[in-house]
Amino acid sequence: MKPFFSVLISLYNKENFIKSTLESVRAQTFHDFEIIVVNDGSTDGSEAVVQSISYHRIRYFKQDNKGAASARNAAISNANGKYFALLDADDLWQENYLETIHQLILSYPNQKVYATAVSIETANGEIRSVYSIKNITDGEIYLVDYFESSYINTLLTSSSTVVHPSVFAKTGTYDTSIKSGQDTDLWIRIGIHYKIVFINLPLVTYRYGKESLSNKIKRVVDKPKFDNYTDLEAVNPSMKKFIDLNRFSMAILSKLENDQISFNRFEKAIDYKNLNKKQQFLLKQPPSVVRCFYFFKKRIEYLGIHLSAFK
């Protein structure tokens, strides 16, 4: 019999996190699931940690290092569940996460994509992720457009999203040509075709450790270019604004890297009406000023002060 959920975890060099991540899945109050772990050629002790855990629901696979997109696709291809629950190898679920998603599915059986709110772990405790849903209230359920809801932070993440397998049949899986940010590219394709059932409860903890790849400046050449969506943007204003906000992030990253060619490519595609005053100001600053702002922002985060150009 098929499990209700397949929990899909791609693993690369997370030996200090994967045990607690798996324990957070094992502690779920809803028990009808399998766990698919795909080790993407880890060079640390990640494999030993997983193999030290005796739990019949874990199905373990390993491959040579091919990148996160490839490992996530391998997990998808090996999954047997009625729904696929995405989870990064260093994040945590509250014990009622799957039970809550299960209730959302029963309440909205004609929908295909489900998500919860996220808390972000920082050096000074956890902070709630903020979304661009009008009059948003704690604990409420919303059926929303992905793009309109994600102008501040993405409504979908790699640890808070559950999809019906038919979604991947329609949208395709992760783009293996994108080394970093392949999840954003997938969310765009999902947002084109599906509404999101979202509950504003922070049932996922995004762990933002110093050793996390997410806490480093990534190369802009490894990021999505968004070139495939130009025609659709022209007829979908909310999608255009969402992608322009992502282009803004890529343009700022280009400035941090002194990559003028990439900056020009992203900046010229932006409709400045989709940016707020802070974002417009930052795009006009020289790279040296942008770098000062960036490192100042990172430094004061350790004091519990969080600045954002998106609100």
Rank of each mutant, 00 (worst) to 15 (best):
A169F: 03
A169T: 05
A169L: 02
K170E: 12
T171S: 04
T171I: 07
T171H: 10
T171M: 05
G172Q: 04
T173E: 10
T173H: 07
T173F: 07
T173N: 13
Y174Q: 09
D175R: 06
D175I: 03
D175Y: 06
D175P: 10
T176I: 09
T176L: 02
T176F: 03
T176N: 06
S177Y: 04
I178D: 00
I178L: 02
S180K: 15
G181W: 12
G181Y: 07
Q182C: 05
Q182M: 08
D183F: 08
T184K: 06
T184D: 10
D185F: 12
D185N: 12
D185E: 15
L186Q: 07
W187N: 12
W187E: 09
W187Q: 13
R189D: 04
R189C: 02
I190E: 00
I190G: 09
G191W: 10
G191D: 04
G191T: 03
I192H: 03
H193D: 01
K195L: 12
K195R: 09
I196K: 01
I196V: 09
I196C: 01
V197P: 10
V197K: 04
I199L: 06
N200W: 10
L201P: 01
V204Y: 01
T205V: 13
T205R: 15
Y206V: 02
R207S: 11
R207I: 07
Y208Q: 15
Y208F: 13
G209C: 11
G209M: 09
K210T: 11
K210R: 08
S212K: 14
S212H: 14
S212F: 07
S214K: 10
S214N: 15
N215F: 02
N215C: 09
I217E: 03
K218D: 07
K218M: 07
R219V: 14
V220K: 00
V221S: 15
D222G: 00
D222E: 12
K223W: 14
K223F: 15
P224C: 08
P224E: 08
P224G: 13
P224R: 14
P224D: 11
K225V: 05
K225R: 14
F226M: 14
F226R: 11
F226E: 10
D227Q: 14
D227S: 15
T230C: 14
T230H: 13
D231H: 02
D231I: 13
L232K: 06
L232Q: 08
A234N: 04
V235W: 04
V235L: 05
N236F: 04
N236L: 00
N236M: 03
S238P: 09
